[in-house]
Computed example of a mutant assay.
Amino acid sequence: MSLEAFRTEIAAVTADIAAELAGRQPDAALDAWLNARHGAGSATFERLSALCRSGVAEGWLCQREGGGIRYGRVFKPDAELHQHSVDVVDMTDIAGPHHSHPNGEIDLIMPIDPEARFDGRPAGWLVCPPGSAHQPTVSGGRALVLYLLPEGRIEFTR
């Protein structure tokens, strides 16, 4: 597995997202569409999950650690990624720092432990609309979470 293969896969997903959104903001409809098209058990989900697991094991993902969370920005927003930044976190039964999403946030939840949940959600996608905020929390074990941030925008609460 490689960073290049990961970028190629992410570019395909962000192209699909951009086409589906067609000028509107991330919302509940995108959440449902992503889970139906690229959700748990789909080929896309399996490829991204395998790439993320491999990236963590090989050390090219989640290269930083703070407060019990391994994390890292993998790619900054650019045209190939349809202006989404890409971050991956590795969390086990922990709440991360509270933050808001000026342009929304699109998350792929990949449980390592079968019962792991991210903000109460199992394997699959979670779309947070623009202006939303949360304290990202993994419960029930360990999970990897891939974050797509439109224009890379995130605001951490002080």
Rank of each mutant, 00 (worst) to 15 (best):
M1G: 12
E4H: 14
R7A: 11
A12F: 00
V13Y: 09
V13H: 02
V13P: 05
T14Q: 05
A15I: 08
D16H: 14
A18L: 05
A18P: 04
E20N: 04
E20F: 13
E20W: 15
R24F: 13
R24K: 14
R24W: 05
Q25G: 06
Q25I: 09
P26H: 00
P26Q: 06
D27F: 11
D27T: 09
A28F: 14
L30K: 03
L30D: 04
W33L: 13
W33I: 06
A40E: 07
A40Q: 08
G41F: 01
T44Q: 11
F45I: 05
L51F: 11
L51N: 07
C52G: 03
R53P: 10
S54T: 13
G55T: 00
V56T: 03
A57D: 07
E58T: 03
L61V: 07
L61G: 01
C62S: 00
C62V: 02
R64S: 12
E65M: 01
E65F: 03
R70E: 01
F75A: 13
F75N: 06
F75E: 06
K76D: 15
P77V: 09
D78G: 07
L81V: 06
L81H: 00
V86H: 07
V89E: 06
M91A: 13
M91W: 12
A95C: 09
A95E: 09
A95L: 10
P97W: 14
P97H: 15
S100I: 03
H101F: 01
P102V: 05
G104Q: 01
I106K: 08
I106P: 00
D107W: 05
L108E: 00
M110C: 15
I112K: 12
I112F: 13
A116Q: 07
R117H: 06
F118Y: 13
F118L: 03
G124P: 05
L126C: 06
P130S: 09
G131N: 04
G131I: 06
H134I: 02
Q135P: 03
Q135S: 07
G140Q: 07
G140T: 00
G140Y: 10
G141W: 10
G141C: 02
G141I: 09
R142I: 05
A143K: 05
L149C: 05
G152N: 10
R153N: 14
R153V: 13
